[in-house]
Amino acid sequence: MTIATSSPAASTSASEQQEKNRRAIRIWLGIVVLAIFALVLVGGATRLTNSGLSITEWQPIHGVIPPLNLKEWQEEFSLYQKIPQYELMNKGMTLDQFKGIYWWEWSHRFLARSIGMIFALPLLFFWLTGRIEKQLRFRLLGILALGGLQGFIGWWMVSSGLTQRTEVSQYRLAIHLVMACLIYSASIWVMHGLMPARKSAAPARSAKGFAIALFALVLFQIYLGALVAGLRAGYAYNTWPLMDGAFIPGDLFIQHPWWINLFENVKTVQFVHRCGAYLLLTVAFLNMMMSLSSAPNARATRRSLILFLLICAQATLGILTLIWDVPFHVALTHQAGALIVLGFAVAHLRLLVGPYPPEPQEQSRS
């Protein structure tokens, strides 16, 4: 018996097929990323319009179909009228007004279900046709599992506002948004890991460390923003750069125990969110300057400049959202900006880590 390696022509053909498969998976994941981006924006609109509690039941299958006639609309409305939000905030609301908030929440849930299908069905197809490399299988299954968990987290969040509160818990809202961002980031990470390697000058020695720090800070800042949204803290202290007449306002830790202020004190949560923005901007600036000074021609340096400019734009949107008292379109643009910055931070880090290595071609036996 002899063992013969595959011919150069066969090896080239296999490599070309692998690249075609990778390109197809990149396109699929790109569609997933865009869908998640839209989902988070619709979720933000749902939050800004106070629509998130308009559907008071979790029906993963039957809930796909909205009310189709007057009787069904009245049944949905009667369920909403039983929760505290209606009694304390919207008592006297008409059916037409209820429809306005209902459609936001229904759209959010429908889009979430659609993303599950957009992810799961192509994954199954690529897997069964042998287009997914072994090194990707558990990564993609992990993303799918996170998506399923996110559905439960979403209902867990909504249920917190149906009995004693008029809005959902800010803790659960923050977990829900961070989980969405992790799924979004993981999809971008895998997608960019499948891109062909490109030659470039060596990046600055500190580039990878800064990239990790920037990703962590952006994600943490989004978490803080969710706490601000959950407490409606953006509607208070609408001045900048001073807050309540000072750079460091008083009464930041008036609640006991002291740490509870970081989650439940409107002033403290907004102040920490501001400080997080200053820290993120500073780290992005230092990363850019160090990269420009030590590796000006590197591709990673150009990306560090773009990332800094994106963070500057996002900071400007945050300030405008605050001083203009959270107008709908500006606030939603601010949320979109957060996702753009996060996505670019992930892509920047992925560039420094490098793409997935090609899967070795099997040898033929004779």
Rank of each mutant, 00 (worst) to 15 (best):
residue 213 A to I: 08
residue 315 A to M: 12
residue 125 F to K: 09
residue 116 G to F: 00
residue 314 Q to G: 06
residue 181 C to D: 13
residue 320 L to R: 01
residue 7 S to K: 10
residue 59 Q to L: 14
residue 138 F to V: 00
residue 25 I to K: 11
residue 354 G to I: 08
residue 290 M to R: 15
residue 108 H to R: 05
residue 316 T to Y: 05
residue 316 T to N: 03
residue 10 A to E: 15
residue 212 I to K: 02
residue 245 G to D: 06
residue 217 L to C: 09
residue 47 R to W: 07
residue 295 A to Y: 10
residue 237 Y to E: 01
residue 66 P to L: 03
residue 51 S to M: 05
residue 197 A to Q: 13
residue 264 E to Q: 15
residue 294 S to E: 10
residue 282 T to S: 01
residue 299 R to N: 09
residue 124 L to H: 03
residue 324 W to A: 01
residue 268 T to K: 04
residue 246 A to T: 02
residue 78 S to C: 08
residue 316 T to Q: 02
residue 223 Y to V: 01
residue 107 S to D: 09
residue 334 H to R: 10
residue 255 Q to F: 03
residue 9 A to K: 08
residue 73 W to C: 09
residue 78 S to G: 07
residue 52 G to T: 13
residue 330 V to G: 06
residue 344 F to P: 03
residue 309 L to I: 11
residue 360 P to Y: 00
residue 118 I to S: 06
residue 77 F to D: 09
residue 123 L to Y: 15
residue 134 K to L: 08
residue 177 L to K: 05
residue 293 S to K: 15
residue 263 F to E: 05
residue 5 T to P: 13
residue 58 W to S: 03
residue 247 F to E: 00
residue 14 A to M: 12
residue 75 E to Y: 06
residue 307 L to F: 11
residue 307 L to M: 12
residue 303 R to C: 00
residue 112 A to N: 09
residue 77 F to E: 04
residue 89 M to Q: 10
residue 282 T to N: 01
residue 301 T to E: 12
residue 49 T to E: 14
residue 63 G to A: 10
residue 20 K to I: 05
residue 291 S to E: 08
residue 25 I to L: 13
residue 311 I to F: 02
residue 16 E to S: 10
residue 26 R to L: 11
residue 322 L to C: 04
residue 346 V to N: 11
residue 310 L to H: 05
residue 291 S to F: 07
residue 311 I to Y: 00
residue 222 I to H: 12
residue 18 Q to L: 13
residue 114 S to W: 00
residue 331 A to C: 06
residue 122 P to Y: 02
residue 176 H to Y: 07
residue 306 I to V: 15
residue 342 L to Y: 14
residue 144 L to F: 12
residue 151 G to W: 06
residue 347 A to K: 10
residue 61 I to M: 10
residue 294 S to R: 12
residue 179 M to I: 11
residue 238 N to W: 04
residue 109 R to I: 08
residue 219 L to S: 15
residue 326 V to W: 06
residue 14 A to E: 14
residue 116 G to E: 13
residue 166 T to S: 09
residue 2 T to R: 15
residue 143 I to M: 09
residue 290 M to T: 15
residue 18 Q to F: 06
residue 281 L to Q: 12
residue 255 Q to G: 00
residue 34 L to M: 12
residue 94 T to W: 00
residue 312 C to D: 00
residue 234 G to F: 07
residue 301 T to I: 06
residue 301 T to V: 07
residue 14 A to C: 10
residue 250 G to D: 04
residue 54 S to E: 08
residue 37 F to T: 02
residue 252 L to V: 01
residue 6 S to A: 14
residue 1 M to Q: 12
residue 345 A to V: 09
residue 146 L to F: 04
residue 104 W to H: 08
